[in-house]
Design a protein around this nucleic acid. Structure first.
Lengths: 182, 182
DNA sequence: TGGAGCATGTAAGACGTTACATGATTTA
DNA sequence: TAAATCATGTAACGTCTTACATGCTCCA
């Protein structure tokens, strides 16, 4: 259900084609929602068939931009005000962390260093995007909040990885299990 | 693929039945991984058929606890060391945030207050769990890192919601659009 | 003119959820 | 002895991914 709402949210902000949406799913929205092109295009057709979005005139290079309809906007508002958010998440970084005790501390540290680097790089990207917003546009004012959520999450993830690296440094090797020194 | 790894991770930490695992997916692991009982039970059967886990003697009340095998542990280590984590995420709270400009500021604030309360409540729960860990057990040492990741994420989410409430307070009503006062 | 990227799609299969089913054990 | 909870499952359906297909346009 939420893929529909993700598409409506993007198109409500400004008219977009499937291709535009796919680029967002690969970029900014990677930490919010994502879908493959093969899922996006048929869903856009369905939204149009249901009257929630409308195909605009074909743009350059065969683009098919969609705009939101009154009915689409109404559906989006209803979703926001009458249903509550699903808080269940899937986070592979944390899942792997729970299994880290099964590998050598050196391997665990390699994993954490990779995570640290990844989150730092993403953080830089988000901050650039945040500066590009036009706060006179209501949709961009909301995007500011959304991007700030991403920035704070990435900062938390990066500082966690740094902290975890220090903790793992104190772990005994798995092949030479801990022994008391008494 | 990662559901298998989530199950292996849990069972590697200590033997567990499907029921145990379902309770974890509903509780601690809600921000890490989740699956419904109807997906968990068949997957456990498959893992056992593949020799990655082994059914122990039937416990009280018809419980069927599984323990990890050497082959299962080897598979888990290989996953950790030879593949890298998928960082794509789905976060309905942030998705909804991008659409918040379509509703009245008062409705947006109600949403943010609900989020704030939710994250604060979860945070308290995680901190209790973290205190219950036995750091002499390697699996619990890894769990400490995992739970800390959750704590930091929830802290970030709560402080973001507080900040966002302040920002939304400055938004003009959608029915009475902004006008310059000059 | 040939390669990279633009832009949209179909089909098959894997993964995940919802609805439903079953029986045992503990507690009131 | 009735209700709540424990504990495991099947079937149908919906969502998402992977593999494959097509043609256009920009740039070197």
């Amino acid at each position: 259900m939420s893929l529909r709402m993700a598409l409506l949210t993007l198109i409500a902000g400004q008219p977009r084609s499937g291709y535009d949406i796919n680029r967002e799913f690969d970029g900014v929205l990677m930490f919010v929602w994502h879908a493959k092109p093969t899922q996006v295009y048929p869903e856009l057709k369905r939204l149009a068939a249901d009257g929630l979005i409308r195909e605009q005139d074909e743009g350059p290079r065969g683009r098919r931009p969609y705009e939101i309809t009154q009915e689409g906007l109404r559906t989006l508002r209803e979703w926001l005000t009458t249903t509550s958010a699903d808080h269940s998440q899937r986070n592979e970084t944390v899942l792997r962390t729970f299994a880290l005790w099964t590998v050598e501390p050196a391997e665990a540290q390699a994993f954490l260093r990779e995570e640290l680097e990844y989150h730092r790089a993403r953080l830089r990207g988000l901050r650039v995007l945040q500066k590009g917003l036009d706060l006179d546009r209501p949709a961009d004012r909301a995007a500011l909040l959304g991007l700030e959520a991403g920035v704070r999450r990435l900062e938390a993830a990066a500082s966690w990885a740094e902290w975890a690296l220090g903790v793992v440094a104190t772990w005994p090797s798995t092949t030479a299990p801990e022994q008391d020194t008494g």
